[in-house]
């Protein structure tokens, strides 16, 4: 059934559409609501995706973001959460196809905002041999704030080059994998080299740290892998999952 507010809601989301019959407003005043809806959400996307905006320019960004707002309006009332699907939209947005890395830059930027607001995690530090030995039988997971991003583009290089007032050059044009996470109160990036990227990917689906170590082709790599895990846990990218609960009844 078309209730009054349903009609109102549809009209707000239809720019240049007619205003609902039951609203009295001469002088095109209903359009204020249509403009507010799009412009406030475009502004919210601009706050989350400043580098995407910089890479395409203000006008292009405004047009692309407006298209996204009308196609995928927020489902959450927390505006900081808006834009989770923006990267996928950008990837499929034909006018932007000359910038194939744009969607991954959007993924990185959204991961940064998500990291900032994510839940805390009571740490289980891997300091000392005892702690490492105890962790061997545990599962290792991403910290609640962390996103693993594997890109065929230099996604972090592009982001960093656009933090300066005058965009710098990307140091090395090569695929990049990184974890975006919170370290204390700050947002951190932990880049992973080829070995680290492959091991972390295995680790996140393995039943335990030990099981992941056993998949290494050369046993002498286990030391390097352990050091990597210790570092990523210390920096807040990974966490040692709590032990599986012991069944109370047999």
């Amino acid at each position: 059934m078309r209730t009054p507010l349903k009609s109102f809601s549809i009209a707000v989301r239809t720019p240049d559409g007619v205003q609902p019959m039951f609203v009295s407003a001469a002088g095109g005043r209903f359009a204020i609501y249509q403009r507010n809806h799009v412009s406030s959400l475009v502004a919210a996307l601009a706050r989350t995706f400043p580098v995407v905006k910089r890479l395409v320019g203000d006008d292009f960004f405004a047009a692309m973001a407006a298209r996204f707002v009308l196609q995928a309006p927020p489902r959450s009332r927390i505006i900081a959460e808006y834009g989770g699907d923006f990267a996928a939209f950008v990837a499929a947005f034909e006018p932007a196809e000359t910038l194939p890395y744009l969607a991954d830059v959007a993924r990185l930027e959204h991961a940064r905002v998500a990291a900032f607001h994510a839940a805390d995690h009571e740490g289980f530090d891997l300091d000392g041999e005892g702690a490492i030995a105890a962790a061997l039988t545990r599962r290792i997971a991403l910290h609640p704030s962390a996103t693993l991003l594997a890109s065929p583009h230099p996604v972090l290089g592009l982001w960093q080059a656009n933090q300066r007032e005058t965009p710098g050059a990307v140091a090395r044009w090569a695929p990049e994998t990184l974890i975006i996470h919170r370290d204390g109160d700050a947002i951190a990036h932990s880049p992973l080299d080829d070995f680290a990227a492959e091991f972390v990917t295995t680790l996140l689906t393995a039943d335990s740290l030990e099981a992941a170590l056993l998949t290494l082709a050369e046993p002498e790599l286990a030391g390097a892998a352990l050091l990597l895990v210790v570092r990523l846990v210390r920096d807040g990218a990974l966490v040692v999952a709590p032990p599986d609960p012991t069944p109370e009844h047999f």
């Binding site: 707000v12 809806h37 927020p74 505006i79």
Partner: peptide, 17 residues
């Protein structure tokens, strides 16, 4: 005011009857 309908958040304070 109202700001949501059909699960969509309109991000504005809209008038009611």
């Amino acid at each position: 005011a109202w700001s949501s309908h059909d699960g969509v958040y309109l991000n504005d304070l809209l008038p009611l009857a």
